[in-house]
């Protein structure tokens, strides 16, 4: 039932060294070439705030910012991020001071179970930076890559509005 010992080298997966900045901290890491950014964060760096909801880019729970743009980290191979700047939910607050969108999510109760929340907030930060907050309809459209199964959408829109416009 069990392998007799370490398999020969031919069966090992190729790996690469990448240097990237995660939440302001520059790191040089050897990654298995198969590793997604999401698995790098969660399984190798202990940053479990980004969530795996589908591993197929359909739910948005893994959303992070790469070089300021929101991406599905489950669909992004870590090996291609040499030189990139990555911001995750863990890097959003300034010390004890929450990012305005994090505070707005609490104020408006824009989550229930909280599992999609990291992705929603990172996506919301991207949405605000992109300037897609002109109306509730626009926010709904540009936040539709992030599924919330508890159904907190109404409050998510309010939270994004608050953070975008100081409402």
């Amino acid at each position: 039932m069990f392998g007799a010992g370490p398999a020969d080298a031919a069966q090992a997966s190729p790996s690469s060294r990448v240097t990237l900045t995660i939440n302001g901290e520059r790191r040089t890491i050897t990654v298995d070439n198969r590793t997604s950014l999401l698995d790098l964060l969660r399984e190798h760096l202990g940053l479990t705030g980004s969530k795996k909801g589908c591993n197929a880019g359909a739910c948005g729970a893994c959303t992070v910012l790469v070089d300021g743009r929101r991406v599905n980290s489950c669909l992004t191979l870590a090996v291609r991020l040499d030189g990139a700047e990555v911001t995750t939910i863990e890097g959003l607050a300034k010390g004890e001071r929450l990012h305005p969108l994090q505070q707005a999510f609490i104020d408006h109760d824009a989550f229930q179970c909280g599992y999609c929340t990291s992705g929603q907030i990172m996506s919301g930060v991207g949405c605000i930076d992109e300037g897609h907050t002109g109306s509730p309809e626009e926010i709904r459209e540009f936040m539709s890559g992030n599924i919330c199964r508890c159904g907190a959408y109404v409050n998510i829109v309010r939270a994004v509005e608050q953070a975008a416009h100081g409402k």
Binding site: R42, T48, I89, Q102, I106, D109, T117, S118
Partner: peptide
């Protein structure tokens, strides 16, 4: 009231089953 666990959830610190180290 706002959720007492709200801060943990908006900072990614709430530990779900697969998150435990």
């Amino acid at each position: 009231l706002s959720r007492v666990d709200g801060r943990l959830k908006v900072t990614g610190q709430a530990k779900y089953a697969a998150d435990h180290d």
